[in-house]
């Protein structure tokens, strides 16, 4: 008797409570995320304009064909976004880990340093981009630093206005701005590794490098997955930095998918086409996320 009743009754209240507790979030998501995404889906197969007296018409896959065949800026944005993601994920992740190892020591005043490293994370990206625009300009701070350090032997370029340095400059600045966050995440991972493992490694006479390879890194595995996923998603959404610093130039060197979608939808008022670009973007990120999930789950 008991076994027949027990799984029954609690399950039904549990079921009901589950729905009730998830309902507020679910309703908000339905209203403010899923609905706009569905609208985007519908818009992407039309020629809707932001401002137009003409009735919208169904265009099938025209917008998608246009993106890949008649819009060099879109192709450039795709290329730049992928380059950005491929470079910044290991760069920012690695620097974050380096900083976490650096900051994970028990000495006086370490909290102050931790706070300083985190400062860019809490500052508005618009403000940071504006400041870096000054730093990167031809007669800006970076170049005076370069010529001072090399005693005038080297002089920098006009970083943001040079097709071969503009994207790297944005990558460097973005890694700088975001690394503090991932430092804290890595740090939290480091602090979950039991001290006893290090002591055991000490007894075995491991070198610092061996301790990192055999104790620290395995212990950081879950953190690694989290860092990988969060940097990747943030990397694909790159928008404010090129908007403020370069507006996608020079010669499409820094245009990103989100920036292109926003420019198309707002400045050019081509809402339907912008929606198609957004949709391609969603699919791309979804596929990349699924691949990452699979890769990180297998071992």
């Amino acid at each position: 008797m008991l076994t027949a009743i027990r799984p029954h009754r609690p399950a039904s209240t549990e079921e009901r409570t589950g729905w009730v507790m998830v309902a507020p979030a679910a309703i908000l998501f339905a209203l403010f995320l899923i609905t706009p995404v569905i609208l985007t889906l519908i818009l992407s197969v039309t020629n809707v304009r932001l401002i137009s007296p003409n009735p919208p018409s169904f265009q099938g896959v025209d917008n998608f064909v246009r993106a890949f065949t008649a819009d060099p800026t879109f192709l450039a944005s795709l290329r730049n976004t992928l380059i950005f993601a491929v470079v910044i994920v290991p760069l920012q992740g690695g620097l974050g880990l380096g900083l976490a190892l650096l900051i994970n020591q028990k000495i006086r005043g370490i909290n102050a340093f931790r706070t300083i490293y985190f400062v860019p994370v809490v500052t508005s990206m618009v403000v940071l981009s504006m400041l870096w625009k000054f730093i990167y300009q031809a007669d800006g701070l970076l170049n005076s630093l370069i010529s001072t350090v090399t005693f005038g032997a080297l002089s920098g370029t006009d970083w943001l206005n040079n097709t071969s340095t503009a994207l790297p400059a944005i990558i460097a600045m973005s890694a700088w701005a975001g690394v503090g966050f991932h430092m804290v995440i890595w740090l939290s991972g480091l602090q979950t590794i039991p001290e006893s493992l290090y002591e055991a490694a000490d007894l075995d006479g491991c070198s610092p490098w061996q301790k990192f390879a055999f104790v620290t890194w395995p212990g950081l595995r879950p953190t690694f997955v989290f860092v990988l996923v969060t940097i990747t998603i943030a990397a694909f959404s790159l928008f404010i930095q090129p908007l403020v610093m370069t507006n996608g130039g020079p010669l499409n060197a820094t245009v990103t998918i989100v920036l292109h979608a926003v420019n198309t939808g707002f400045s050019k008022q081509q809402t339907g086409y912008a929606a198609a670009i957004s949709l391609i973007f969603f699919l791309l990120v979804l596929v990349v996320s699924l691949i990452q999930r699979r890769l990180t789950k297998e071992d």
Partner: peptide, 14 residues
């Protein structure tokens, strides 16, 4: 899955 939707891309329908 909603994590992959940057707000800027849905601003206009929104």
């Amino acid at each position: 899955a909603t994590l992959i939707v940057p707000f800027e891309t849905i601003a206009v329908p929104m």
